[in-house]
Design a protein around this nucleic acid. Sequence first.
DNA 1: ATCTATGCAAACATTTTGCAGGCTG
DNA 2: CAGCCTGCAAAATGTTTGCATAGAT
Lengths: 143, 143
Amino acid sequence: MQKLDSIIAGLRKDGYRITPQRVAILDYILSSESHPSAEELHEFIKKKHPMVSLATVYKTLELLKEKNLVRELKFAGGARYDANVARHVNLVCVSCGRIEDMEHSLLEQLESDVARKSKYSVLGSKFELYGYCSQCQKEKLPR
Amino acid sequence: MQKLDSIIAGLRKDGYRITPQRVAILDYILSSESHPSAEELHEFIKKKHPMVSLATVYKTLELLKEKNLVRELKFAGGARYDANVARHVNLVCVSCGRIEDMEHSLLEQLESDVARKSKYSVLGSKFELYGYCSQCQKEKLPR
DNA sequence: ATCTATGCAAACATTTTGCAGGCTG
DNA sequence: CAGCCTGCAAAATGTTTGCATAGAT
Protein backbone atom coordinates (compact mmCIF):
# COMPACT_ATOMS: atom_id res chain seq x y z
CA MET A 1 0.00 0.00 0.00
CA GLN A 2 1.50 3.27 -1.11
CA LYS A 3 0.10 5.43 1.66
CA LEU A 4 1.65 3.14 4.24
CA ASP A 5 4.97 3.30 2.43
CA SER A 6 5.02 7.04 2.21
CA ILE A 7 4.15 7.40 5.87
CA ILE A 8 6.91 5.00 6.80
CA ALA A 9 9.35 6.89 4.63
CA GLY A 10 8.31 10.11 6.35
CA LEU A 11 8.76 8.68 9.83
CA ARG A 12 12.13 7.25 8.90
CA LYS A 13 13.22 10.59 7.52
CA ASP A 14 12.28 12.20 10.83
CA GLY A 15 14.58 9.80 12.60
CA TYR A 16 11.96 7.43 13.98
CA ARG A 17 12.74 3.74 13.93
CA ILE A 18 10.58 1.48 11.87
CA THR A 19 9.74 -1.51 14.00
CA PRO A 20 7.44 -4.40 13.08
CA GLN A 21 5.08 -3.22 15.81
CA ARG A 22 4.74 0.23 14.30
CA VAL A 23 4.23 -1.14 10.84
CA ALA A 24 1.54 -3.54 12.02
CA ILE A 25 -0.32 -0.81 13.90
CA LEU A 26 -0.08 1.62 11.02
CA ASP A 27 -1.09 -1.00 8.50
CA TYR A 28 -4.19 -1.96 10.43
CA ILE A 29 -5.39 1.50 11.27
CA LEU A 30 -4.91 2.78 7.73
CA SER A 31 -6.91 -0.05 6.22
CA SER A 32 -9.61 -0.05 8.87
CA GLU A 33 -12.90 1.68 8.31
CA SER A 34 -14.05 0.93 11.80
CA HIS A 35 -12.39 3.55 14.01
CA PRO A 36 -10.96 0.99 16.42
CA SER A 37 -10.16 1.52 20.07
CA ALA A 38 -6.68 0.83 21.41
CA GLU A 39 -7.90 -2.45 22.82
CA GLU A 40 -9.44 -3.56 19.52
CA LEU A 41 -6.29 -2.61 17.67
CA HIS A 42 -4.29 -4.63 20.13
CA GLU A 43 -6.53 -7.69 19.88
CA PHE A 44 -6.41 -7.69 16.12
CA ILE A 45 -2.70 -7.14 15.84
CA LYS A 46 -1.95 -9.91 18.33
CA LYS A 47 -3.28 -12.44 15.85
CA LYS A 48 -0.31 -11.95 13.58
CA HIS A 49 2.12 -10.39 16.01
CA PRO A 50 1.50 -11.98 19.41
CA MET A 51 4.29 -10.07 21.03
CA VAL A 52 2.86 -6.59 20.61
CA SER A 53 1.93 -5.08 23.95
CA LEU A 54 -0.92 -2.74 24.66
CA ALA A 55 1.53 -0.17 25.99
CA THR A 56 3.25 -0.09 22.64
CA VAL A 57 -0.08 0.40 20.91
CA TYR A 58 -0.72 3.42 23.09
CA LYS A 59 2.77 4.78 22.57
CA THR A 60 2.49 4.38 18.82
CA LEU A 61 -0.92 6.01 18.72
CA GLU A 62 0.55 8.90 20.68
CA LEU A 63 3.23 9.30 18.05
CA LEU A 64 0.74 9.11 15.20
CA LYS A 65 -1.45 11.72 16.87
CA GLU A 66 1.49 14.08 17.18
CA LYS A 67 2.37 13.55 13.55
CA ASN A 68 -1.25 14.21 12.65
CA LEU A 69 -1.55 10.83 10.98
CA VAL A 70 -4.46 9.71 13.10
CA ARG A 71 -7.12 11.54 15.00
CA GLU A 72 -8.35 10.62 18.44
CA LEU A 73 -12.09 10.62 19.03
CA LYS A 74 -13.19 10.57 22.66
CA PHE A 75 -16.25 8.60 23.55
CA ALA A 76 -17.82 7.00 26.58
CA GLY A 77 -15.89 3.77 27.04
CA GLY A 78 -12.67 5.18 25.70
CA ALA A 79 -11.01 6.74 22.70
CA ARG A 80 -11.28 5.59 19.12
CA TYR A 81 -8.82 6.30 16.38
CA ASP A 82 -9.49 7.57 12.91
CA ALA A 83 -6.86 7.47 10.18
CA ASN A 84 -8.95 9.78 8.06
CA VAL A 85 -7.50 13.15 8.99
CA ALA A 86 -9.22 15.06 6.20
CA ARG A 87 -12.15 17.22 7.20
CA HIS A 88 -15.22 15.01 7.51
CA VAL A 89 -18.34 14.28 9.54
CA ASN A 90 -18.35 11.33 11.92
CA LEU A 91 -21.69 9.58 11.92
CA VAL A 92 -22.01 7.67 15.17
CA CYS A 93 -24.69 5.02 15.53
CA VAL A 94 -25.73 4.93 19.17
CA SER A 95 -27.25 1.49 18.75
CA CYS A 96 -24.58 -0.62 17.04
CA GLY A 97 -21.63 1.67 17.73
CA ARG A 98 -20.39 1.95 14.20
CA ILE A 99 -18.82 5.19 13.05
CA GLU A 100 -19.02 6.21 9.41
CA ASP A 101 -17.27 9.05 7.71
CA MET A 102 -18.89 11.49 5.33
CA GLU A 103 -17.54 14.48 3.53
CA HIS A 104 -19.53 17.65 3.25
CA SER A 105 -18.74 20.95 1.65
CA LEU A 106 -20.55 22.98 4.30
CA LEU A 107 -18.00 21.85 6.84
CA GLU A 108 -15.21 23.98 5.47
CA GLN A 109 -17.51 26.92 5.06
CA LEU A 110 -18.74 26.60 8.62
CA GLU A 111 -15.23 26.27 9.98
CA SER A 112 -13.87 29.30 8.21
CA ASP A 113 -16.87 31.39 9.07
CA VAL A 114 -16.69 30.52 12.75
CA ALA A 115 -12.93 31.15 12.71
CA ARG A 116 -13.46 34.60 11.28
CA LYS A 117 -16.22 35.56 13.69
CA SER A 118 -14.51 34.19 16.78
CA LYS A 119 -11.03 35.42 15.90
CA TYR A 120 -9.67 32.01 16.81
CA SER A 121 -6.63 30.79 14.94
CA VAL A 122 -7.96 27.39 14.05
CA LEU A 123 -6.04 24.14 14.21
CA GLY A 124 -8.82 21.75 13.40
CA SER A 125 -12.40 20.81 14.03
CA LYS A 126 -14.61 17.85 14.72
CA PHE A 127 -18.20 17.30 13.78
CA GLU A 128 -20.04 14.31 15.18
CA LEU A 129 -23.59 13.37 14.50
CA TYR A 130 -25.36 10.86 16.76
CA GLY A 131 -28.33 8.75 15.81
CA TYR A 132 -29.49 5.41 14.48
CA CYS A 133 -27.96 4.15 11.26
CA SER A 134 -30.36 2.99 8.57
CA GLN A 135 -29.71 -0.65 9.36
CA CYS A 136 -30.47 -0.28 13.06
CA GLN A 137 -33.65 1.60 12.20
CA LYS A 138 -34.86 -1.39 10.20
CA GLU A 139 -34.01 -3.97 12.80
CA LYS A 140 -37.14 -3.11 14.73
CA LEU A 141 -37.37 -0.39 17.29
CA PRO A 142 -33.96 0.80 18.38
CA ARG A 143 -33.38 1.19 22.02
CA MET B 1 -33.31 32.35 38.64
CA GLN B 2 -36.29 31.28 36.60
CA LYS B 3 -34.59 28.61 34.57
CA LEU B 4 -33.36 26.93 37.71
CA ASP B 5 -36.84 27.09 39.19
CA SER B 6 -38.52 25.58 36.19
CA ILE B 7 -35.99 22.76 36.02
CA ILE B 8 -36.50 22.04 39.68
CA ALA B 9 -40.25 22.03 39.21
CA GLY B 10 -39.84 19.58 36.33
CA LEU B 11 -37.65 17.23 38.31
CA ARG B 12 -40.04 17.35 41.25
CA LYS B 13 -42.95 16.56 38.99
CA ASP B 14 -41.06 13.53 37.70
CA GLY B 15 -40.75 12.28 41.26
CA TYR B 16 -37.12 13.22 41.87
CA ARG B 17 -36.23 14.60 45.25
CA ILE B 18 -34.91 18.10 45.44
CA THR B 19 -31.88 18.01 47.69
CA PRO B 20 -29.56 20.91 48.53
CA GLN B 21 -26.81 19.03 46.69
CA ARG B 22 -28.80 18.89 43.48
CA VAL B 23 -29.81 22.51 43.73
CA ALA B 24 -26.22 23.59 44.28
CA ILE B 25 -24.94 21.58 41.34
CA LEU B 26 -27.71 22.75 39.04
CA ASP B 27 -27.30 26.33 40.16
CA TYR B 28 -23.60 26.35 39.45
CA ILE B 29 -23.68 24.60 36.12
CA LEU B 30 -26.50 26.76 34.81
CA SER B 31 -24.75 29.98 35.66
CA SER B 32 -21.32 28.84 34.56
CA GLU B 33 -19.93 29.80 31.22
CA SER B 34 -16.88 27.69 31.72
CA HIS B 35 -17.94 24.13 30.94
CA PRO B 36 -16.58 22.75 34.19
CA SER B 37 -15.36 19.24 34.82
CA ALA B 38 -16.87 17.13 37.58
CA GLU B 39 -13.84 17.86 39.71
CA GLU B 40 -14.10 21.63 39.19
CA LEU B 41 -17.78 21.53 39.96
CA HIS B 42 -17.05 19.64 43.14
CA GLU B 43 -14.31 22.03 44.24
CA PHE B 44 -16.49 25.04 43.71
CA ILE B 45 -19.56 23.63 45.38
CA LYS B 46 -17.60 22.52 48.43
CA LYS B 47 -16.96 26.15 49.29
CA LYS B 48 -20.58 26.65 50.24
CA HIS B 49 -21.62 23.07 50.80
CA PRO B 50 -18.63 21.24 52.26
CA MET B 51 -20.55 18.01 52.60
CA VAL B 52 -21.16 17.40 48.91
CA SER B 53 -19.24 14.36 47.69
CA LEU B 54 -17.74 13.85 44.27
CA ALA B 55 -19.83 10.72 43.84
CA THR B 56 -22.98 12.77 44.23
CA VAL B 57 -21.71 15.23 41.65
CA TYR B 58 -21.28 12.37 39.21
CA LYS B 59 -24.65 10.86 40.04
CA THR B 60 -26.37 14.21 39.61
CA LEU B 61 -24.62 14.87 36.31
CA GLU B 62 -25.76 11.44 35.16
CA LEU B 63 -29.33 12.38 35.97
CA LEU B 64 -29.04 15.72 34.20
CA LYS B 65 -27.59 14.06 31.13
CA GLU B 66 -30.50 11.64 30.96
CA LYS B 67 -32.95 14.51 31.32
CA ASN B 68 -31.10 16.33 28.55
CA LEU B 69 -30.42 19.29 30.80
CA VAL B 70 -26.68 19.16 30.38
CA ARG B 71 -24.43 17.82 27.68
CA GLU B 72 -21.25 15.89 28.30
CA LEU B 73 -18.21 16.84 26.25
CA LYS B 74 -15.38 14.33 26.24
CA PHE B 75 -11.84 15.66 26.23
CA ALA B 76 -8.39 14.50 27.11
CA GLY B 77 -8.23 14.80 30.87
CA GLY B 78 -11.88 14.03 31.35
CA ALA B 79 -15.40 15.13 30.58
CA ARG B 80 -16.72 18.67 30.77
CA TYR B 81 -20.32 19.65 31.16
CA ASP B 82 -22.27 22.17 29.18
CA ALA B 83 -25.65 23.42 30.31
CA ASN B 84 -26.26 24.93 26.90
CA VAL B 85 -28.12 22.12 25.18
CA ALA B 86 -29.16 24.18 22.18
CA ARG B 87 -27.31 23.57 18.95
CA HIS B 88 -24.03 25.47 19.02
CA VAL B 89 -20.35 25.39 18.19
CA ASN B 90 -17.84 24.74 20.99
CA LEU B 91 -14.71 26.80 20.52
CA VAL B 92 -11.90 25.11 22.42
CA CYS B 93 -8.70 27.04 23.12
CA VAL B 94 -5.88 24.50 23.19
CA SER B 95 -3.66 26.95 25.06
CA CYS B 96 -5.73 28.19 28.00
CA GLY B 97 -8.38 25.48 27.90
CA ARG B 98 -11.39 27.74 27.80
CA ILE B 99 -14.45 26.67 25.86
CA GLU B 100 -16.73 29.26 24.32
CA ASP B 101 -20.10 28.71 22.73
CA MET B 102 -21.19 30.23 19.45
CA GLU B 103 -24.38 29.85 17.51
CA HIS B 104 -24.30 29.47 13.76
CA SER B 105 -27.09 29.00 11.26
CA LEU B 106 -25.06 26.67 9.06
CA LEU B 107 -25.05 24.11 11.82
CA GLU B 108 -28.69 23.21 11.43
CA GLN B 109 -28.39 23.16 7.68
CA LEU B 110 -25.37 20.88 7.84
CA GLU B 111 -27.03 18.57 10.32
CA SER B 112 -30.20 18.14 8.34
CA ASP B 113 -28.32 17.69 5.10
CA VAL B 114 -26.07 15.02 6.52
CA ALA B 115 -29.06 13.31 8.11
CA ARG B 116 -30.83 13.17 4.78
CA LYS B 117 -27.85 11.87 2.84
CA SER B 118 -26.82 9.30 5.42
CA LYS B 119 -30.34 8.13 6.23
CA TYR B 120 -29.49 8.33 9.91
CA SER B 121 -32.27 9.19 12.30
CA VAL B 122 -30.48 11.92 14.16
CA LEU B 123 -30.53 12.44 17.91
CA GLY B 124 -28.00 15.22 18.17
CA SER B 125 -24.68 16.53 17.03
CA LYS B 126 -21.54 18.14 18.29
CA PHE B 127 -19.24 20.56 16.54
CA GLU B 128 -15.95 21.45 18.15
CA LEU B 129 -13.36 23.80 16.81
CA TYR B 130 -9.84 23.74 18.21
CA GLY B 131 -7.38 26.59 18.09
CA TYR B 132 -5.94 29.57 19.93
CA CYS B 133 -8.36 32.14 21.28
CA SER B 134 -7.69 35.75 20.43
CA GLN B 135 -6.27 36.44 23.88
CA CYS B 136 -3.79 33.56 23.76
CA GLN B 137 -2.69 34.68 20.32
CA LYS B 138 -1.76 38.06 21.72
CA GLU B 139 0.09 36.73 24.73
CA LYS B 140 3.11 36.00 22.61
CA LEU B 141 3.63 32.99 20.43
CA PRO B 142 1.43 30.10 21.40
CA ARG B 143 3.11 26.79 21.85
C1' DA C 1 -43.10 6.23 57.56
C1' DT C 2 -41.33 5.33 53.18
C1' DC C 3 -37.98 4.95 50.10
C1' DT C 4 -34.82 7.88 47.38
C1' DA C 5 -30.36 10.21 47.56
C1' DT C 6 -26.14 10.72 49.98
C1' DG C 7 -21.19 9.88 51.50
C1' DC C 8 -17.67 6.83 51.88
C1' DA C 9 -14.57 3.58 50.17
C1' DA C 10 -13.62 0.17 47.19
C1' DA C 11 -13.86 -1.33 42.51
C1' DC C 12 -13.31 -0.37 37.72
C1' DA C 13 -11.67 0.91 33.11
C1' DT C 14 -8.57 3.24 30.49
C1' DT C 15 -4.30 5.31 29.79
C1' DT C 16 0.44 6.52 31.30
C1' DT C 17 4.92 5.69 33.21
C1' DG C 18 9.60 3.60 34.75
C1' DC C 19 12.82 0.50 33.83
C1' DA C 20 15.78 -3.38 32.05
C1' DG C 21 16.79 -5.44 27.92
C1' DG C 22 16.26 -5.94 22.62
C1' DC C 23 16.53 -4.30 18.03
C1' DT C 24 17.01 -0.61 14.40
C1' DG C 25 19.89 2.16 11.82
C1' DC D 1 27.23 -0.45 18.95
C1' DA D 2 24.57 3.68 20.53
C1' DG D 3 20.36 4.81 21.80
C1' DC D 4 15.52 4.47 20.63
C1' DC D 5 11.73 1.20 21.24
C1' DT D 6 9.66 -2.65 23.49
C1' DG D 7 7.21 -5.48 27.10
C1' DC D 8 6.10 -5.83 31.66
C1' DA D 9 4.18 -4.30 35.77
C1' DA D 10 2.90 -0.74 38.57
C1' DA D 11 0.83 3.69 38.93
C1' DA D 12 -2.17 7.28 37.75
C1' DT D 13 -6.51 9.11 36.29
C1' DG D 14 -11.33 9.53 35.82
C1' DT D 15 -15.62 7.40 36.72
C1' DT D 16 -18.85 3.96 38.72
C1' DT D 17 -20.75 1.03 42.27
C1' DG D 18 -22.39 -1.15 46.85
C1' DC D 19 -23.96 -0.29 51.04
C1' DA D 20 -25.50 1.74 55.41
C1' DT D 21 -27.76 5.77 56.77
C1' DA D 22 -29.57 10.60 56.34
C1' DG D 23 -33.19 13.13 54.75
C1' DA D 24 -37.15 14.61 51.29
C1' DT D 25 -41.86 13.92 50.64
